[in-house]
Every structure is written in structure tokens, then in C-alpha cells.
Computed example of a mutant assay.
Amino acid sequence: MGGTIAMVPGGRGGVVPALDAGELIAAVPGLAGLGLEITARGLRSLPSPSIGFGDLVALADAVKAEIAGGARGVVVTHGTDTIEETAIFLDLTVPGPAPVVVTGAMRAPTSAGADGPANLYAAIRVAAAEEARGLGALVVMSDEVHGARFVRKGHTSSMAAFVSPGFGPLGLVVEGEPRLRGTPRVPMSLAASDKVAGLRVGLITVALGDDGEILRRAGEVCDGIVLAGLGAGHVPADMVPVVAEVAGRVPVVLASRTGSGSVLRQTYGYPGSERDLLDRGLVHAGFLDPAKARVLLLLLLADGADKERITAAFEHYR
């Protein structure tokens, strides 16, 4: 799909996507000794901030076609900025036990200490591992194996940027061998419909002193909204009327901006607390971070889900 792993210096400074899938495979030592039949194909060559949901629909279709054609597993190379959204999209739209592993790089191939070849080697080993079957979509970076539901990019530039807050990785790659202790994927499969590209789901982050005006305006143009609340799922009291108004018109999912932990349900009872907001019809995101909650909400809306089904889906998947 592009990303730093496939970038080379551009004519105007900085690096840009340029390498194709075959070139990436050719740069990884040790693959010939694995006894695997590896095929390579290019789908996109983009920096990951420019990947859209239409691209992810095409990616999900391509992954399902490879699996239907007999692939034991699929590895997707991708830019790291939005790798977590792509991983959860694939987790929700590619059914079956075959491993789908997303990987990338924090340093371009021309950088000192480039990590792309090592990450790609580890990802291929995981995709071929029997223990990875049934775990859903995975992200493999720096010899760690993360589940799609919980992985996040937690640093702008560190080689150890990827973490799963509160849960940790599902396994490690040790001397090239996957050591997995994975939990089976949540049984949920949604269509990778072209309708996702025509929907608008907003992600609004609440801040100190927020009066809700940005949320109000977003509610006028969005089909659904994820509200990244303060702490365990809270908003300022002055914002509550706007939240209630918008939630009466479009689905509003309550997540937390903290980066770790679940939205609470019944600890706090003041205006703008999690109890207050859930009583006003917001949908509980559980452990899903705001970006992942947005992907799930968008896929549900594209599938025609009503408020009751959206609530049930978040209860099931979180």
C-alpha cells in the first residue's frame, strides 16, 4: 500500500513511496530458506495519511481474493500513520482463520538502521504460522505481534512506536520464530462496502472548557460521530445539551481520549459524566480507542445498522 517501508528520496527533499512489492520482497534476506511460495502484488503506493476508505475496500477485496485463491496467509505493507485503522478494518471485513498481517517501517530503506526488511520477514513468518490462524488481523512491528483491536502508534519516530495499551502484544518473534499466546478474534464480520467512501463519520476530541460548538457543527454534516471524551468518558457540563441534541439525530459513540483503558459505565454521576451521557443515548465504546471506534461505526452505518444494532455491535466487539 506504500508507506515509509517503500520510500526512497524524492526530488524535492524527504522520502516518497516508490518501491513496489517485488522490490520489498527482494530486499529481505533469508526468505528463500523458509520453503514458502511467496507472491507479491502492488495495490497502492501512498503515504498512509492519504489512504481513504475506498482504498481499504479495494484492499479487503484483494486480501479475500488471495485467500480464496489458496493463500495460507497475507501480509500487507503499509504506512505507519494509519496502520491501526487499516488493521481493524481488515479484522472486521476479512472473515476466516487465515492470518492477515499488516507491517511497515519507522525508517525508510535508505536510512541507517532501516527496519523494513526485518519487519517484513517477521510478518511473513507470522502469516505462515499455524498458531496465528484464527487470531484475526495482526500488526507485526519490531518483533512484536499486536492484535488489531488494541494496537496503537504511541510514538512519532521510535522504532518501538507500536503498543497495545492495557493488554500488551499477543506474542513475539524470537530468532525468527513466532511465539504467540493469542486470543481468538471476536466473531464479527462486516461487508467492505463501497458505501463507506460516501459516509462521513467525525471524530471530535473534547478539551477543557469545550462548549460543544465544534460538535454541534459536526453533527450537521456527519452521519455519525465518535466523541473522544475526557478521562473515563466525560465532557464539561456546559457541553451536555449539545451532546444530547446531536445524539438525538445521529449515532454518537463515547470513547476516551486518554489512550488506554475502557470508558466507564456507572462510577460518576455528575452532569457530563459517563452515566449521564450513556443515559442520554450515547453508545459505549468499551476499550476501543476513538480511531478504531470510528472505523467500526462507519462500517456499521454502511451496512445499514440502526441504533440498536450499533449498540449491540459495540457491546460485542469491544
Rank of each mutant, 00 (worst) to 15 (best):
S273N: 04
D211G: 12
D238F: 00
G229T: 03
G248E: 03
G231L: 12
T110S: 13
A127S: 12
F167N: 01
V139G: 08
F150L: 15
S111W: 12
A62M: 01
P29G: 02
I67D: 01
V221D: 04
P99V: 07
S256T: 15
L34M: 13
A6E: 04
V174M: 11
L172K: 09
L288A: 01
T4R: 08
D306Q: 04
K64T: 10
L300W: 05
V221I: 15
G54R: 07
P165W: 09
L59S: 04
L56P: 01
G182D: 11
T156A: 14
V94I: 06
E175P: 00
A285S: 14
M159T: 10
L19H: 07
E220S: 12
L299T: 03
E85Q: 14
D194W: 14
P29Y: 04
S193E: 11
G248S: 07
P178E: 08
R216S: 10
L180I: 04
V252I: 09
L298S: 02
I310A: 04
D223R: 06
A65Q: 09
S193W: 11
E131H: 09
A108Y: 14
H316W: 02
P117I: 12
D223I: 02
T205C: 00
P109V: 07
T205Y: 15
G147E: 14
L199V: 10
G171F: 05
I214M: 11
V263F: 08
E66Y: 01
T156H: 08
M7K: 06
R44V: 04
G168E: 05
K153L: 03
P251G: 04
L24D: 04
R216I: 02
V126Q: 11
I204Q: 13
E175W: 12
L92W: 13
A122L: 06
R216V: 03
G224S: 12
D211H: 13
D143K: 12
Y121W: 13
G116I: 11
R125H: 05
E131D: 15
R125V: 04
R200H: 14
E84P: 03
R275D: 01
D91W: 09
L208R: 14
L199R: 10
S50K: 04
T4H: 04
E308K: 13
A255D: 05
V102L: 15
G35T: 07
G202K: 07
V163M: 07
G73P: 11
A305C: 03
P117T: 09
G212P: 11
H155Q: 06
G52P: 00
R200W: 12
V253Q: 05
